[in-house]
Design a protein around this nucleic acid. Sequence first.
DNA 1: CTTATCAGTTTGTCATGACAAAGTATTGAC
DNA 2: GTCAATACTTTGTCATGACAAACTGATAAG
Lengths: 232, 232
Amino acid sequence: MPLYFQVATRLQELIEKGEIGVGARIENEVDLAERLGVSRPTTRRAIQYLVERGMLVRKRGVGTQVVHPKVRRPVELSSLYDDLVAGDRSPRTEVLELRTMPAPDPIAAALEVAPGTEVTWIERLRYAGGEPLALMHNAIPVDVLRLTPEDLASHGLYELLRRAGLTPRIATQVIGARSATAAEARILTEKRGASLLTMTRTAWDAGGRALEYGSHVYRASRYSFELNLSAG
Amino acid sequence: MPLYFQVATRLQELIEKGEIGVGARIENEVDLAERLGVSRPTTRRAIQYLVERGMLVRKRGVGTQVVHPKVRRPVELSSLYDDLVAGDRSPRTEVLELRTMPAPDPIAAALEVAPGTEVTWIERLRYAGGEPLALMHNAIPVDVLRLTPEDLASHGLYELLRRAGLTPRIATQVIGARSATAAEARILTEKRGASLLTMTRTAWDAGGRALEYGSHVYRASRYSFELNLSAG
DNA sequence: CTTATCAGTTTGTCATGACAAAGTATTGAC
DNA sequence: GTCAATACTTTGTCATGACAAACTGATAAG
């Protein structure tokens, strides 16, 4: 574990425990470095880490202040399944459809691959707490990953990607809303015309290769997106 | 302008122009630093900057690769008004209500201030391209900023905050959806029961002080949220 | 009393040097 | 020909030293 990370963790603990209260200034970099027996760049990097997480704020000529006692996590690249597991809402997945087919033009465009590229097309129904929560459509290029219905029934798509050594790194999402069609309402046990949250996403790995395109609809009565933002 | 930033900008231009193609590896840090006549830490910092923006990816023992030719901006702390101006959709704002009142409990809780703290309560209707787009409710503690209807009619709330030297730094947002009430439908010229996107947000400044609470509804037929995410 | 100047404090930037860790390519043994 | 050990390349971490820029507060001038 890197030194700067150890320092950051130690600082973070002090703040989370409240031993350095909100609004208080922490020791200046030079003294802190000397007291901990590390160099100033290392100290700076540790502080920088906590600044990026929204715990600390620096001001030149003034010092470094605690602004929030808890880490505000940035928006994360996780899947719904992971979120539900973390929230203890006992997710279950029903695979309604799984087949390979040439990508339709809009999906090929979203994935930034040639039109007609073979993709695995998946339609899944996600339950949480025994109730249907979301209807999810995904397209994964076949040369990225091959999937079986069994895998998908018991694991999140992102978990399967990670297991195959594929790490989503960058994603663009569009969140919107619309009314449920009759078919959607029936599947999600909502009334016709009920409001649905829609989310479309394309995710790329570190190599810039598109891993996944997703077009999902959520029951607005049961789900919302939570975001934590921090500006430079 | 800092040296590392100049280097980053230069690299960024080369990549955006396509002179360094996607997938190509850039020169290694040591050589690049020497060629540009700067130190390796400065070069590293410049590269780090572009990595955080999703343009480059580093791999120890391998090198640094271009993964995307355009900057993927992180989710930004900007207001709807700013977005619309940038998108040339000629926004206009109608202030429906503006008064000071003690903050109701849920709003006081969101702002992390004492219940009953005086806030300015604002109800605005935002137009874009001549059509109503969003109905916005905001609460701003009076000791943070005092507002006049004239200011608000011609400027975004965030612009007014900035002008007063208040910079939103951290925010938490919740995005959801629901059906329009009869009153909302009438104001937004939608049908009754039309789907609306909802967004509630609390924004804090660098000092950890809550600047603003907002609860907005958007016409789902005319607006959606776009997010770019990048994972560490 | 008000305002301008100046010194002190603290973070921001940059250079140099060194070693560690991870991945790749080459070489050698079998 | 295959596999393992080795050398090489490249990024990751860390130390030391120095000066610049921004803010604060005290001091001096009006």
